[in-house]
Computed example of a mutant assay.
Amino acid sequence: MDVTLLADADPVPVVLAWWAAHSALTAELGGPGRVGAYSEEPYPRLRAHEVPGGSASGSNGEMLYLVTTCLQVEALGASADSPGVGQLKRINFVALGALAQLPYQPYVSGPIITGVRFVPGSGGPMPDIDGRSRWVSKVMISSHAPRPT
């Protein structure tokens, strides 16, 4: 077994690239360059990062190869009042809708995304640590590395 299968299954870079290239989400955010793992200008912005709650498993007695990643999705405003919680919720939901499309896309490279599930009870407004407005949700993303041929 290839010892890099588990490491190569990380879906976060694929998710960020998918969102950055997604035309509906780019339009909802107000332009390109607003998706990433950090809170930085320009705003509004979509930030995503892995949080505790995922798992790794195998099947048929194999070693670990399937990864389930818990991803926190955050729509961030420019301040406590701008652009408003309603718009941040809309941005977050468009991002979730775009994520739901990912398992059905033709494979290009990187990990294979096999499923995306919303974590019930995880969505809602929650100010960021610096006071800016934010809408937060969590998803579980199942993925695995491509099988060697």
Score class of each variant (00 low, 15 high):
Asp2Pro: 07
Val3Gly: 15
Thr4Arg: 08
Ala7Tyr: 04
Asp8Thr: 04
Ala9Met: 01
Pro11Gln: 00
Pro11Met: 06
Val14Ala: 13
Val15Gln: 00
Leu16Glu: 00
Leu25Lys: 00
Leu25Phe: 00
Leu25His: 02
Thr26Pro: 02
Ala27Ser: 05
Ala27Asn: 00
Ala27Tyr: 00
Glu28Gln: 00
Leu29Glu: 02
Leu29Asp: 02
Gly30Arg: 06
Pro32Glu: 15
Pro32Val: 13
Gly33Tyr: 05
Arg34Asp: 05
Ala37Asn: 14
Tyr38Gln: 15
Tyr38Ser: 14
Ser39Met: 13
Glu40Arg: 14
Glu41Leu: 11
Arg45Trp: 05
Leu46Arg: 04
Arg47Ile: 11
Arg47Trp: 09
Ala48Leu: 15
Ala48Ser: 14
Val51Met: 07
Pro52Asn: 06
Gly54Lys: 06
Gly54Arg: 05
Gly54Met: 10
Ser55Leu: 09
Ala56Asn: 10
Ala56Ile: 09
Ser57Lys: 10
Glu62Pro: 06
Leu64Gly: 10
Tyr65Ile: 06
Val67Arg: 12
Val67Asn: 10
Thr68Lys: 07
Thr69Gly: 07
Glu74Tyr: 05
Ala75Arg: 01
Ala75Cys: 09
Ala75Lys: 02
Gly77Asp: 08
Gly77Gln: 03
Ala78Tyr: 10
Ala80Lys: 04
Ser82Leu: 13
Ser82Val: 13
Gly84Val: 04
Gly84Asp: 07
Val85Trp: 12
Gln87Val: 13
Gln87Phe: 15
Gln87Leu: 13
Leu88Arg: 12
Leu88Trp: 05
Leu88Phe: 07
Arg90Asn: 15
Ile91Pro: 07
Phe93Lys: 14
Phe93Ser: 14
Ala95Cys: 10
Ala95Phe: 03
Leu96Lys: 15
Gly97Met: 13
Leu99Asn: 11
Pro103Trp: 12
Gln105Asn: 10
Tyr107Ser: 01
Val108Pro: 09
Ser109Leu: 11
Ser109Asp: 14
Gly110Ala: 05
Pro111His: 03
Ile112Asn: 00
Thr114His: 01
Gly115Cys: 02
Gly115Phe: 08
Phe118Val: 07
Val119Ser: 01
Gly121Asp: 00
Gly124Tyr: 00
Met126Trp: 03
Met126Ala: 08
Asp128Leu: 03
Asp128Cys: 01
Gly131Lys: 04
Ser133Asn: 11
Ser133Arg: 12
Val136Met: 12
Val136Thr: 14
Val139Ser: 08
Met140Asn: 12
Met140Pro: 11
Ser142Ala: 15
His144Glu: 13
Ala145Gly: 10
Pro146Ala: 08
Pro148Phe: 13
Pro148Trp: 15
